[in-house]
């Protein structure tokens, strides 16, 4: 009896110790992921003087927002020194219509493919799906020529066009997979009620798509906001999105290297998607997994 008690006590202790170890590991990993963000924030709040003398991981002795101000409105990229502000707006002007258009098209495409099956619909879907996977390098050259021909080279509408075209595959996939689980009887009932193709889409399907609309908008916004390849390939001075501007500021060789400004600029560029992530993380993760595990 005694021995039993002792052994249960010892297994209890082992279990507790394991539990602590587990939490310790988890916290250490959390620190690993958080450390860069922490260093970015603290660095952005330090003066250049302090950065050069102090340590990477120490808190700022004196908090200053100068670097943020510079990053927003005065940092130099190339020859111009107007900070990230104009590029932040470029990114918004580019991302908002591109996200809305590609989401809408994806919704109606998904609706057709999942609910109005016709001969060849599956082939079309497969072709769109394969299109999601191409390395964009393979379309850069012809797209640059085409944008030139259309008179959209180096313009924001050109970037919107590119993002819509290459976002279509994913948005269609999202909606198709969402709609495919909806019983075809719903459409039949609506047909008998007298509704047509668009009325059914508008009154029956769109209202029940709120979750997938949120997922798609978040996915597309993150993709487009964070894009660099299209931005750097198809924009010119003045129309660059924020990722390109950030890279230019960081690589700008004029004057002293201002690490605090770089970090503040990086945080500004990351802020919109970070906020989306924090506010709607659930939908963000759902989009990520939906985008990778097909179906």
């Amino acid at each position: 009896m005694q021995g039993d008690l002792a052994s249960t006590a010892s297994t209890q202790i082992t279990r507790l110790a394991l539990r602590w170890l587990l939490y310790l590991l988890l916290v250490l990993f959390a620190l690993y992921y958080l450390a860069p963000l922490f260093v970015m924030v603290t660095t952005s709040l330090k003066s250049l003087e302090e950065i050069k003398t102090g340590s990477l991981v120490s808190l700022p002795r004196e908090v200053t927002f100068d670097a943020w101000g510079t990053a927003w409105s005065a940092a130099c990229s190339g020859i111009k020194c107007e900070g990230l502000k104009p590029y932040f707006w470029n990114s918004i002007v580019m991302a908002v219509p591109a996200v809305l258009i590609s989401t809408f098209l994806g919704a109606i495409n998904g609706y057709v493919i999942a609910q109005w099956r016709f001969r060849g619909a599956n082939l079309i879907f497969s072709l769109m799906l394969f299109g999601c996977f191409i390395p964009f390098q393979v379309v850069l050259l012809p797209m640059a020529r085409l944008l030139g021909l259309m008179g959209l080279a180096g313009s924001i509408p050109g970037l919107i066009f590119v993002h819509v075209v290459y976002g279509l595959g994913f948005t269609t996939l999202f909606f198709r997979n969402y709609y495919v689980s909806i019983s075809p009887e719903l459409i039949r009932a609506a047909k008998i009620d007298g509704a047509g193709f668009f009325r059914i889409f508008w009154s029956v399907f769109l209202p029940l798509s709120v979750p997938i609309i949120v997922v798609t908008i978040i996915w597309q916004f993150t993709q487009i906001w964070n894009d660099f390849l299209f931005g750097v390939s198809f924009s010119q001075a003045g129309t660059q999105p924020i990722t390109v501007a950030l890279n230019n500021i960081v690589n700008s060789t004029t004057g002293v290297k201002e690490y605090n400004v770089d970090m503040a600029a990086a945080i500004i560029a990351a802020l919109p998607t970070l906020i989306v992530y924090v506010v709607a993380g659930k939908y963000f993760i759902r989009g990520l997994t939906a985008g990778s595990v097909k179906g």
Binding site: R188, A189, A190, S203
Partner: peptide, 17 residues
């Protein structure tokens, strides 16, 4: 088309909106 046939239909899954 179905809407002009003067019919009404009840479905297995009910198909309520």
């Amino acid at each position: 088309s179905p809407k002009d046939r003067d019919i009404a239909m009840v479905f297995q899954s009910y198909a309520l909106y």
